[in-house]
Design a protein around this nucleic acid. Structure first.
Lengths: 225, 225
DNA sequence: ACCTAGAGTTTGAGTCGTCAAACTCATGCG
DNA sequence: CGCATGAGTTTGACGACTCAAACTCTAGGT
């Protein structure tokens, strides 16, 4: 409402960095990097957020959103993820491009349009990447899942979420048949090479680094072994 | 592409004012008024457009878009009108609110999303107000129509376009059953009062000022008299 | 021809978001 | 234990956009 587009971007970035960070605090440098901005710029913006009671921060420390700031961040995330869902489900765009598109659209969606969109999409709980869509009241239902990198050889699992939003990662996964909801099996693990070999159900075996695999979340399924 | 959101708004405003104006030139003051900005601000922005070869202008004269500027304005108008169509046809919003919503969304639509939207909507030629949607190549097919105010008593006509985008006008028309495509008949004209009485097919008689009626475009139909 | 009302322009200042570069703090290595 | 390193902060400047207010031009009426 009161927040400029820039402020919205800072709130979203802080929220996401905070989620990643161990201490629940977002280092200013990480926030700056996430936004493609210099550290100095981020520092002065954080001051502004603090003045608006959207964040807390002490000199040389990390940033932490207040309840008010968190609420605002969730609202933006809701817009972002509903837009992504719309772009994939209704317009048929590829999931590798929708993140960037949603990045621009999320700021132009009014509450009225948002609700109409939500209704049109059947009030979805997850976006095309498996990320939970915060509800209008701010509730977020994180799905239970583990990194694919923690599976053992022979394990079966269902892909439930992809954390990486980079286009090339998503194109690789789609091309490999690794989409949200797909079941797969770990064919082999080569720890020396840092690689695991995965077979999606009905697809051919693909190799991926355990680093990449750690950003793909799965739910194990007991299956034919 | 290169144009900021602000520049896009100026281009659109100049295009529309120019269309209205007799001389095919947009007075700076009208442009400023259309954008809710002071005349001084508009003047300096016009200079910028001229520098970018998007408009021509001489001191104390009117503004005129160059072919390049016109092309850009049509692109924005295309986005605006496709978004309006989407909001009404797909999301089911009322036509009295979509103008303002589209005003914000039009700047966030990439060519890719625009084309997907166009395809999803079946490549419509007109938006919910009957305004022509410029095609991707910049062609605009204006529909032939006359102001409803020029009809005579007893005349029948089909409503093809509503020029007024104000919410209250559009709510009045919708409530009266006067939507695009509806047929209607002029019951009476009272020139002294500046009022005409209209009966939409299957509706009850409503009065409206000839001023308001002049902003509603119709195509006469010969009908039972 | 003048002269004034209205339209348009200029000027000076302010806000927002940004950067580069100088500066400050906290830490852990040697 | 001191100090170099890297993270964070401050400062000064800038570009984009805006306003208010002073200024200038144009056109119409007498």
């Amino acid at each position: 409402m009161l927040a400029s587009e820039t402020v919205e971007n800072y709130l979203k970035a802080i929220y996401l960095v905070q989620r990643e960070a161990a201490a629940g605090e977002a280092p200013v440098g990480k926030v700056a990097a996430a936004l493609g901005v210099t550290a100095g710029t981020a520092t002065s913006m954080v001051k502004k957020l603090v003045a608006a009671k959207l964040a807390r921060h002490e000199r040389f420390g990390g940033v932490r959103l207040t309840p008010k700031g968190t609420r605002a961040a969730l609202d933006i995330l809701r817009r972002h993820r509903l837009v992504e869902t719309f772009l994939v489900d209704t317009l048929g765009l590829d999931w590798s491009v929708v993140h960037d598109e949603a990045e621009r659209l999320e700021h132009a969606i009014s509450p009225m349009v948002l609700d109409a969109l939500d209704r049109h999409l059947g009030r979805p709980a997850f976006d095309p990447h498996g990320d939970p869509i915060p509800r209008a009241d701010g509730a977020v239902q994180e799905s239970e899942a583990m990194p694919m990198s923690e599976l053992g050889a022979g394990d079966g699992a269902r892909l439930v979420r992809v954390l990486d939003q980079r286009g090339d990662s998503l194109r690789f996964l789609r091309a490999s048949g690794l989409k949200v909801g797909a079941t797969l099996r770990v064919v082999a693990i080569e720890p020396g090479a840092g690689v695991m070999r995965i077979r999606p159900d009905g697809g051919t075996v693909v190799s991926m680094s355990t680093t990449a695999a750690s950003r793909v979340l799965v739910r194990p399924v007991r299956g034919r072994d």
